[in-house]
Simulated assay, not measured.
Amino acid sequence: MRARARALRARGHNIHSVARSLSLPYTTVWHWCVDRPEPAVFGSAVRCFRCRPEQEPPPDPAAYAYLLGLYLGDGHLVTTDRVPVLRIYCADAWPSLMDACDEAMRAVLAKKVQRIQKQGCVAVQSTATHWPCLLPQHGPGMKHHRPIVLTDWQREILSAHPGHFLRGLFHSDGCRVSNRVVTRGKEYVYPRYMFSNRSMDIMGLCQWALDLLGISWRMNQPWSLSVARREAVAALDRHVGPKS
């Protein structure tokens, strides 16, 4: 209620009109809006869409869906440091993936993004107090050793942007390959997508997003999913495409 009163006041309403519209005493509204204004909010709190008074949707929900897919695949959120650090590990072979990850972090929350060279990969990382607000799936240990469950607000975003979520998942723990089959002495080559993850919860989210788009899939291992039908590959191409 206090946030609503201050929001109305910020839009130019006087104390009387705010008190009347919210059915509050004049002195209460005056105390909230004039006598003791809230301290200024700085840093990532300004950009965190979950910490704004009205719980606004993300400014770029497609970028959030993509970033969440990357995080569930090759991401790690460190919360033991003084300020939380989100790291997404990208193989050296995919420089465009690093750029896409960088852009998604900035679109969602990050003010600055660093790239730290590791052996065979680059850690694209951002330090911000409010990353845990936006990635509630974080926790100690490996992801496949703990439950990975979407919140209601995350499920709403991903339901509207399943293609971007799948793009993040396949860009992290998936690939587009050429499958070769020899039938009656003749070789056939066709593309297919593979997604591998030891977390059954994350695998279930991948299956759910594929079902939302009507893309057929099958499990070739308990931890490995394949999209191989021609029309399914073509549909996934429109949302994911090969890494570069």
Rank of each mutant, 00 (worst) to 15 (best):
R2L: 13
Y71A: 06
C121I: 12
R218I: 08
V46A: 15
G174I: 11
P25W: 07
F165S: 02
L225Y: 02
R184P: 00
C175N: 09
D60L: 14
G163D: 04
C206K: 02
R6C: 13
L86K: 00
L68P: 00
D99V: 10
Y71V: 12
S159N: 13
R50G: 02
R218L: 11
Y66I: 05
T151N: 11
V182N: 01
R50C: 03
S96F: 01
R218Y: 08
M203R: 00
V85P: 03
V46I: 15
G163V: 06
T79L: 07
V189L: 12
A160E: 05
V113G: 04
Y89G: 06
P84I: 10
W208G: 06
A91G: 13
H130Y: 06
D60V: 15
I15G: 01
R180P: 04
R115H: 05
C90L: 09
A40S: 14
H239F: 11
D152P: 00
S23F: 04
V113P: 01
V83Y: 04
G204S: 11
I116D: 15
A107C: 14
P84K: 05
A232S: 10
H138P: 01
F42H: 11
A234C: 09
Q119T: 14
S17Y: 02
D237T: 14
M105N: 05
G43W: 07
A107Q: 09
G139L: 06
H31M: 11
R50V: 05
V227L: 07
S44Y: 01
R2T: 12
K186Y: 08
W131F: 11
C90V: 14
V124N: 00
H31K: 09
S96K: 15
C175I: 11
A160Q: 07
R4H: 09
W32Y: 08
R180T: 14
C33N: 01
P37Y: 12
H145G: 10
H31I: 13
C48M: 07
A228G: 04
V240W: 03
V34L: 09
M1W: 00
G73L: 07
A232C: 12
R167V: 06
S226R: 13
L8Q: 08
S199I: 03
L77E: 08
Q221F: 09
A107T: 10
Q207T: 12
A160D: 06
S172G: 11
M1Y: 00
A3K: 00
K112S: 09
G12P: 00
C90S: 13
W94Y: 12
E56A: 15
L205W: 02
F49M: 06
A104F: 01
G214T: 13
